[in-house]
Computed example of a mutant assay.
Amino acid sequence: MSELKEKIEKAVAQLRTEKPMSQEECNNLSKLGAAFSGASTDLPEEGKIKISKMPVEQRQDMVKVFTALLNHCRSPSAATMTEVVRITHEQETRTCRVSANPFTQTFKRVAGSNNWTSNDGPNGPCGTVVISRLQKDDPKYSLWSYVTRKTITNPNGELPLIGSCSQLDQTEYVYDWRSEDKFTKCDYVKFGLF
């Protein structure tokens, strides 16, 4: 809940410095909201087709977003901005993110074991040290687990787009060959980092 509160406070603070949206921008929001609710609009045919292919629930979410944005456009206030942030945050909480990050690591075998280790760093403004290991779980088969953890040696550093190094995840992660189902309540799946 504190994340939502912070987003609202930041958005309301920006109201003091941002200029209000123009009448043209309000009209465009109105057209988009109408299109998502199924009303006939003068959107390009490509846009109409894309909207028509969306699941009903997604279109309903978009109607909520554009209605809140239009209300804020017509009457900018802390209350209408709060509603925009609340609706978009609620949608974000129902979104699961999937991303891939290609990388290379060099491992050295631990003498007398089925483990291989990698220790890389410190690197970058955060002084990130990545400690990983590959362990062969069953000597008869090629079944391996990968365990990795990042350690931040400079928590006072800053990363572009991310912010303070102290906020970076330092949890140990185990990527195991054993299948494990994950229950998630995702209405949306977003690919990529942002």
Results as ranks from 00 to 15, higher is better:
15 L>D: 11
123 N>G: 10
83 E>Y: 02
101 N>E: 14
44 P>A: 02
89 H>A: 06
62 M>H: 10
161 L>T: 08
130 V>N: 12
9 E>Y: 04
62 M>Y: 15
79 A>K: 07
19 K>E: 13
123 N>V: 08
159 L>R: 07
130 V>I: 12
138 D>S: 00
141 Y>W: 12
86 R>F: 12
99 S>N: 13
102 P>Y: 00
56 V>E: 15
11 A>T: 06
61 D>K: 05
174 V>P: 00
39 A>W: 03
33 G>L: 06
134 L>G: 08
11 A>F: 06
172 E>Y: 07
134 L>H: 00
167 Q>R: 03
142 S>N: 15
171 T>D: 14
32 L>Y: 13
20 P>Y: 03
146 Y>M: 03
189 V>G: 01
133 R>A: 03
37 S>Q: 14
102 P>R: 05
155 P>G: 06
86 R>V: 02
5 K>D: 14
109 R>S: 11
173 Y>P: 01
98 V>Q: 12
41 T>R: 05
50 K>G: 10
40 S>E: 12
48 K>F: 04
17 T>H: 04
192 G>Q: 06
134 L>D: 13
33 G>E: 05
140 K>L: 14
194 F>M: 13
162 I>N: 00
163 G>Y: 02
90 E>C: 05
64 K>C: 10
66 F>M: 11
148 T>M: 11
145 S>V: 09
36 F>L: 00
175 Y>I: 14
66 F>S: 08
48 K>L: 11
24 E>F: 08
33 G>V: 08
21 M>P: 01
17 T>P: 00
131 I>Q: 10
117 T>R: 15
76 P>Q: 12
75 S>P: 03
54 M>L: 13
137 D>T: 14
194 F>K: 14
152 I>G: 03
175 Y>R: 12
135 Q>K: 11
19 K>W: 03
163 G>T: 00
183 F>D: 01
19 K>N: 09
177 W>V: 07
93 T>Y: 09
17 T>W: 01
11 A>K: 00
3 E>A: 09
131 I>D: 08
141 Y>V: 10
99 S>I: 02
32 L>Q: 13
26 C>Q: 00
43 L>I: 04
97 R>L: 04
188 Y>G: 07
76 P>D: 00
8 I>Y: 06
5 K>S: 07
5 K>W: 04
174 V>E: 07
180 E>Q: 15
55 P>C: 04
175 Y>Q: 09
60 Q>I: 08
121 G>C: 01
17 T>E: 15
27 N>K: 05
96 C>M: 09
84 V>S: 04
85 V>K: 05
